[in-house]
Design a protein around this nucleic acid. Structure first.
Lengths: 341, 341
DNA sequence: CTGTTAGCGCGTTCAC
DNA sequence: GTGAACGCGCTAACAG
């Protein structure tokens, strides 16, 4: 065995060790590290030297316990794998980090009971804030969060009764707007492929928006024009084919997710169907793939990064003492008209 | 103002409050919660009742400080937005959660100095383990991690000198294998589009693998057949066009990322180039998009989920007392031959 | 500006 | 099987 240090050897230094080596009191070390301006030049120098010499890292667990302030934010998304959330998470993460906060991430798998368990665990960790990509919660969870007093951001949809703060866009309005847009472009028979609706208010709202638009247009609400599909490429392809088979006059398909839409687009390519000649395609969310696909795909731009950024900013402000008042931010959406329609 | 409870009102209950209400000592509450078997039926009942009645959540910060054991794992990826990491993170997250561990996630933005800062922050939080999607570290970071004694998993590439444990595949071998595969299929002039190489050993290794294959094939190493491109669809399209312009006899393009490859594929569609008639396309990583694209794209299957799962499992085992010995797991890769080549 | 005292809310350890 | 004493490493609050 080599002479190299073995892992785990030697326990971490404590503040009082650093204090001793610097010839000051632990309290001075603490201050020099957290608010250098509250300490004299000389003390600061001595402390810094000792800290660097030993590579001292303050124990934030002890710090949090003592100050009863933690610096980690809990984030729950329906699925970590879904890249949609990634751009939101990234933006939130950037803001939080710039403010010395960390991010604990978990996914609920779209299950309300899991969300509850995760939030419990986060609260047990004494997170200083929560971001939930969901606005429908179990009764127990609402109570849990409310009594905890931890600031919470809900996102993913605009809730009727926010737990605390909400930063989102309206799925209902977005789906409605796109349906109206397609109608305005002249499409007469518009199918809608929705993601699973169970326990998912976002999907439900999108469906409602689609029907609301049809109603405004004076068109009948035909349930056979709506298909529910899990979010894969094959499912999108499949849904399109089934819709067209059932409605040979279908001239537009509106897909509630980019994977579904692109799956359908690929199916059109395989079958040699012109898009938008034979059928137009519209999607939800503006991901790179849709912009670069051939043809490029009409879609809704949801400001995911802004949502993440704004959520984090509101959380930070609240932690800095802003009054705990309900806030509901609607960041809107935008229709991006492209070649596919 | 309504009579509803205001946020933040009333501080959280403590173990001794529960103990008082249950008519037992705090210690009994602690035991009833963590190892119910060590407590009598009756005590457990009383404790459980009080816990449920007040919705008590043990303060894990205090618990961690007291036991000097934390239950959160730190994970650093180059970019949260990159969905490749998502499948790894998901798998790791599942295993960790099943073992009562939480995940703190941060991204280094491919910057070594950021990685160092993040790892410092994680160590200050006293994470019980680290997973780093990177195998090239600053000198200071190596020391930091080594002296901390925290178990570490490195992944993303097979390191020559692992910090501790490594779970990955070989970028070198994967790129080499694909290049040989394309040659075996009869392609005579194979271009390679690499992701930025700076501070990224994965990219560098892939490039080396490509050249190693050419050498084995007795073909000259022509630098003009290699292009470095940032990982966007346009960059992939652009790279393909530049390669073909420089080498009109180019008959295959090997792209070090799925976005680049699909970007190139879209460009072929726009130009009406047959794939693989005019040019074959191969990619790295087996994402759904490549399987469903038209034509479907030949690629390398990297076992991302397995990497995440295995990493988490090794970490858990170590935390359960497994000896701190270096472990290097190569989970390999697989060539997935599809229509595009 | 600096140091002292007294916890933060638990778990470890050892009696009983 | 249960409880009391003590300490985890740091910071709030106050004294100097």
């Amino acid at each position: 065995m080599s002479g190299k240090a073995r892992r785990g050897e030697g326990s971490a230094l404590k503040m009082r060790d650093i204090a001793r080596h610097a010839g000051v009191s632990p309290m001075t070390v603490s201050r020099a590290l957290r608010q250098p301006s509250a300490v004299s030049e000389e003390m600061r120098r001595k402390v810094d030297a000792a800290v660097r010499e030993f590579g001292y890292l303050p124990n934030r667990i002890a710090g949090s316990l003592s100050s009863s302030r933690s610096n980690t934010v809990g984030l729950v998304v329906p699925s970590i794998r879904n890249s949609l959330y990634a751009s939101m998470i990234q933006a939130a993460s950037d803001v939080l980090r710039a403010n010395g906060l960390h991010l604990m991430i978990a996914d609920s798998g779209h299950r309300l009971e899991d969300e509850e368990a995760l939030v419990s665990a986060f609260l047990a960790q004494r997170v200083c804030g929560l971001i939930l990509h969901n606005t429908v919660h179990s009764k127990r969870m609402r109570k849990l969060v409310e009594t905890s007093g931890v600031p919470v951001i809900e996102t993913g949809n605009l809730p009727d009764e926010p737990l605390d703060m909400a930063v989102s866009y309206s799925n209902f309005e977005a789906a409605r707007a796109m349906t109206l847009h397609l109608a305005r472009l002249g499409y007469r028979r518009i199918g809608f492929v929705t993601l699973p609706v169970r326990d998912n208010d976002r999907s439900e709202e999108r469906r409602r928006g689609y029907f609301a638009a049809l109603k405004e247009l004076g068109r009948p609400a035909d349930d056979s024009l709506v298909l529910e599909a899990a979010g894969g490429f094959s499912e999108g392809a499949d849904a399109l084919v089934r819709l067209v088979n059932a409605h040979p006059d279908l001239d537009a398909g509106f897909f509630a997710g980019e994977v579904l839409a692109v799956g359908a687009l690929f199916e059109c390519q395989r079958r040699g169907w012109a898009v938008p000649g034979r059928i137009a395609i519209a999607s939800f969310d503006d991901v790179d793939l849709l912009r670069h696909a051939v043809p490029s795909v009409t879609t809704l731009r949801i400001p995911r990064p802004e949502i993440g950024k704004r959520s984090a900013e509101l959380l930070v402000r609240r932690l800095q003492g802003a009054p705990a008042e309900p806030i509901k931010v609607d960041l809107g959406f935008e229709i991006v008209q492209r070649e596919s329609s």
